[in-house]
Simulated scan of single mutants.
Amino acid sequence: MREGFRDDLDRLDERLAGMTEAAAEAMRLATRALLTADLAIAEQVIGGDSALDDQRAECEEEAYSLLALQAPVAGDLRGVLAVVYCAEKIERMGDLAAHIAGTVRRSHPARTVPAELEPVFSELGDVTAAMADRLTQFIRGGGVEGGYAELSRSDETVDALHAKVLATITSANWAHGQRPAVAATLLTRFYERFADQTVSVAKRLEFAATGALPGSR
């Protein structure tokens, strides 16, 4: 029974890894749509968000089934509960990528952000998608210890880019008016929240693996 239970946990982990892959790709595509004003790509991201919602539901259903049928304890219990927690966070990451794509839809055919901010948003997209990629590697490779610290450092980079956007749109040299400033503020917040979710997932995965919250050992 224990071997079968381990197989079930491995399948749950693979479902979770598939979700992080999808979230990373959604962020890449949403950023591409943002920087190119590509409505077709934006619609692809928005339309694909429901698939991630379905994956979350499937993860939760399988996890709750294991809890009911196997009554896991200790590390196994932490692992199953972590899947439920992380699936919700990763699904939220997909929502945030879809929000970015939604701004492209609303602004089309105009570009959402001025050219001077495009390099910052390009970097935001690269960093946040890479954070989701690392989550996939942690889940599949099992090397989750240290993942929280690594992604926390990446999150600091995102915070710095967020601050850079805010400094730009509030400076005396900003010449694009209120609407682009509001759009940039919302967009950078979506990227920041995406990064925050990856850190939350990494923290829970590390706790599930070690039994101790990162930073408390």
Rank of each mutant, 00 (worst) to 15 (best):
A22V: 06
L67H: 04
L69C: 06
V45I: 03
L29W: 12
D10M: 13
D133T: 11
L66E: 09
E123R: 15
A181I: 06
T210K: 03
A101L: 09
T188M: 01
Q55S: 14
S216V: 13
A63Q: 09
E145G: 02
G75I: 13
I41W: 07
G125V: 07
A71L: 14
T185E: 00
A71F: 15
G143E: 09
E192H: 07
A74Y: 08
D95S: 04
D53F: 01
T20D: 00
S200V: 10
D133N: 12
F5L: 10
K164Y: 00
L12G: 09
D8K: 10
D95K: 07
M131Q: 06
L166D: 03
P109C: 06
G79L: 10
M27S: 07
V158Q: 02
N173Q: 15
L9S: 02
V182Q: 08
V83W: 05
A40G: 13
D49C: 08
F138D: 08
A87L: 07
L12Q: 00
D76P: 00
A208T: 06
R217H: 15
E61I: 12
I46V: 15
A172F: 11
A130G: 14
R56Q: 15
E21Q: 14
D7I: 10
D133Q: 12
S122P: 04
D13T: 13
A22I: 03
M131C: 02
D133W: 02
R179N: 13
E91L: 07
E156K: 12
T128M: 01
L39Q: 08
V80F: 05
T31Y: 09
Y191H: 04
L35P: 01
L16D: 11
T20K: 04
V120F: 03
S122H: 09
C86G: 01
V84R: 04
A212S: 13
D196R: 01
A71G: 02
A130W: 01
A37S: 13
G75A: 15
D155M: 04
W174P: 05
I41H: 04
L66T: 01
V83N: 01
A24E: 10
E118M: 09
G211R: 10
A23L: 00
G147Y: 00
A184Y: 09
A163Q: 12
D155R: 07
A130Y: 08
D53Y: 11
T170Y: 13
T170D: 12
